[in-house]
């Protein structure tokens, strides 16, 4: 709505103005951030452990080294992860399989954190379609395109998805895009991917990654979407997303499936 207000003002011939300001923000004790992922791909799975910094510091997040990290599943497999670089812990032999429940255990700086995630069943990404957008921002000269992932949501409710798009020209879209089946459960997907600042144009080589994610991961990412780029005045009152990690860490542990498709936009 914030954006709409600003467009509205532009329409009235009035300009809003933006400027960088200094705000005296409190500092707080550094907190542990854990981001653990396990996929159905045959590759090492990674758990990253870092710490928060104060707002005024640079975006270099201190790594937590020497932690004890294991991932196990509900059929008796377990692996202790190796720290391959500072704060980055990886598996070498564990395989992610849909339907299994994975448990991550992290012991770091005298504290233990655990989290569970279920790898959902894969939902087949049949194809991707691109369609010319009917909306072109006033400043844009070329037509823009939207991506429609082609898949059919399973009949049972509770499917959650994450999409990541990238093009050869713009690279990876960092916008978090998630969807679920609250709307059009059990139907072929009809919704495009809306990403405010990512532009897809004719001639781009476009890759779409589709993940099936579990509900806690969806909720976590959905909160990030809601608070991203929205400050007071127009957005949702921000809060820390609910984490599935028990023990008091920020971040999440997610088991998901991965599929990718690439096309040339034309």
């Amino acid at each position: 709505m914030n954006k709409i207000t600003i467009v509205f003002l532009a329409v009235l011939g009035l300009t809003s103005c933006q400027k960088e300001i200094d705000i005296d923000l409190n500092s707080t004790n550094a907190q542990v951030v854990i981001e653990g992922e396990i996929t159905d791909q045959n590759e090492p799975y990674t758990v990253k452990i870092t710490k928060t910094v104060n707002f005024t510091e640079s975006n270099n997040y201190p790594a937590i080294k020497g932690a004890n990290v294991t991932i196990s599943d509900n059929v008796g497999n377990s692996e202790k992860l190796i720290e391959t670089s500072a704060g980055v812990y990886q598996t070498s032999k564990l395989r992610g399989i849909s339907g299994r429940i994975y448990t991550m255990t992290v012991s770091a700086e005298g504290k233990t954190y655990t989290a569970q995630s279920t790898m959902p069943a894969l939902v087949k990404l049949e194809d991707i379609r691109v369609v010319k957008s009917t909306f072109r921002p006033p400043t844009e000269k070329e037509d823009l395109y939207n991506v429609f992932p082609q898949f059919t949501d399973p009949i049972a409710t509770g499917n959650n998805y994450r999409f990541i798009q990238s093009t050869d020209k713009s690279g990876k879209d960092n916008t978090i895009i998630v969807a679920n089946d609250n709307v059009e459960n059990g139907q072929p997907n009809s919704r495009p991917i809306f990403s405010r600042d990512f532009k897809i144009k004719v001639g781009d080589i476009l890759t779409l990654e589709m993940r099936t994610i579990d509900r806690p991961t969806y909720n976590y990412l959905f909160t990030l979407v809601q608070i991203a780029g929205n400050g007071p005045g127009g957005g949702t009152t921000p809060s820390n997303p609910d984490s599935n990690i028990i023990g008091g860490a920020l971040g999440y542990f997610s088991a998901y499936t991965v599929q990718k498709k690439t096309i040339v936009v034309q």
Partner: peptide
């Protein structure tokens, strides 16, 4: 209003810490 008191990186994005 709610302003951040810190920040971290998660899911490839700078994320703010609210206290």
């Amino acid at each position: 209003v709610t302003f951040p008191s810190g920040k971290y990186n998660v899911a490839g994005n700078t994320t703010y810490l609210y206290t």
